[in-house]
């Protein structure tokens, strides 16, 4: 029981991560793959942020009378990661639009099938 109470934040992150991973490797649709990657990303964010949380802490904004703050360092790293994640998502989606122009499909199998005779 103590184990569950102390570690459930990691486990939730792991379950989310595996859900995203599953979508990425089991789906042939490229847009679905990007969605899976996004879920995977959020799970990493959650992992970091939950590590930074402190029992009884407040948001890391200095104020009179407050002494215990949650850890600001993961917040900074994840802020960066969110923005970078959107940039990479945009690039991936742009690639998909381009693939759709060239092949007329966003399904992985159909793309491979079109490539084979050549």
């Amino acid at each position: 029981m103590e184990l569950v109470q102390g570690l459930y934040n990691y486990w939730i992150a792991m379950i989310l991560m595996m859900a995203g991973f599953y979508v990425v490797i089991s789906r042939g649709n490229l847009i679905k793959k990007i969605v899976g990657l996004n879920i995977f990303q959020t799970s990493v964010f959650l992992l970091y942020i939950s590590m930074g949380a402190v029992e009884g802490g407040t948001a890391p904004i200095l104020e009179e009378g407050l002494t215990r703050f949650s850890n600001p360092l993961p917040h900074v790293l994840i802020l960066t990661a969110i923005v970078v994640g959107v940039a990479t998502t945009a690039l991936g989606l742009a690639l998909i639009v381009r693939i759709n122009e060239a092949y007329g499909t966003v399904e992985e199998e159909e793309i491979h099938a079109q490539d084979e005779p050549a």
């Binding site: 570690l7 486990w11 991560m17 590590m51 930074g52 402190v54 009884g56 802490g57």
Partner: peptide
């Protein structure tokens, strides 16, 4: 494997975790 790896992580909300 990942969940097994979390077993010796610091507990959630622990103010004495190394990260703090």
């Amino acid at each position: 494997a990942l969940i097994y790896g979390t077993l010796d992580m610091p507990r959630f909300g622990d103010p004495n975790a190394p990260i703090h």
